[in-house]
Each structure stands twice: as C-alpha cells, then as structure tokens.
C-alpha cells in the first residue's frame, strides 16, 4: 500500500485495538516523534464515529422498509409527531 494508506492502517490498528496494535509504550513513543500522529488519530476517530452514525441511519432505513413490506406504510412521521404534541 502507499505510505499514506499504511499510516491509516497503523492508526486503525491502534484505535480499534486489533491484535496487531502496538503496545501502548511504543505508540506513545511514536506520538512523541511524530508531531502529527495524535491529531491524525483524533481525526480518524471522528471518521469512525461518522461512519457509525451513517451505518445506523442505513440500518434504520432498512428497518422502515421491512416494516412497510410486512405491515404497509405507517403514514407520514410528521403526522405522528403532531399527534403526540396535540393529542386531540
């Protein structure tokens, strides 16, 4: 892989604590000698957070589709929210 991709891989191993993750002492040493490593790792953590949110959104879309296939459309969600606020 290109060095840039290898760097993403290295950070990923650390953040996801895969079996290939460096021992904590070695990681801290790398952070000392590589001034951008800490910031790059923080950015990558944000990417994973965003991917988790996006995955959850996709799963919810899939579940709504399954619901519709099994039971039909529940009607517009704004109407449900409106009924909740003004339950006349």
């Amino acid at each position: 892989m290109r060095p840039e991709l290898d760097r993403l891989h290295l950070i990923e191993q650390q953040l996801l604590q895969t079996p290939a993750a460096l021992p904590a002492s070695e990681w801290h040493l790398r952070q000392l000698f590589d001034g951008e490593l800490t910031a790059d790792a923080a950015l990558q953590r944000q990417l994973y957070h965003g991917l988790h949110q996006a995955g959850r959104q996709q799963l919810k879309r899939e579940l709504r589709t399954i619901h519709t296939q099994l039971y039909g459309s529940p009607g517009p969600r704004w109407l449900a929210a409106l009924r909740r606020c003004w339950p006349w």
């Binding site: 993403l8 990923e12 950015l43 990558q44 944000q46 990417l47």
Partner: peptide, 17 residues
C-alpha cells in the same frame, strides 16, 4: 477512508485532538 478523511480534514479543527 482516505477519500473521506480528505473531505473532512478541510474542516477539522484541533479541538478534537
């Protein structure tokens, strides 16, 4: 992942570090 990183990095600020 690199593509996503490049898109995000432009607006990423150090307060998340």
């Amino acid at each position: 992942l690199e593509r996503l990183r490049e898109k995000v990095r432009a607006v990423f600020t150090p307060e998340f570090a």
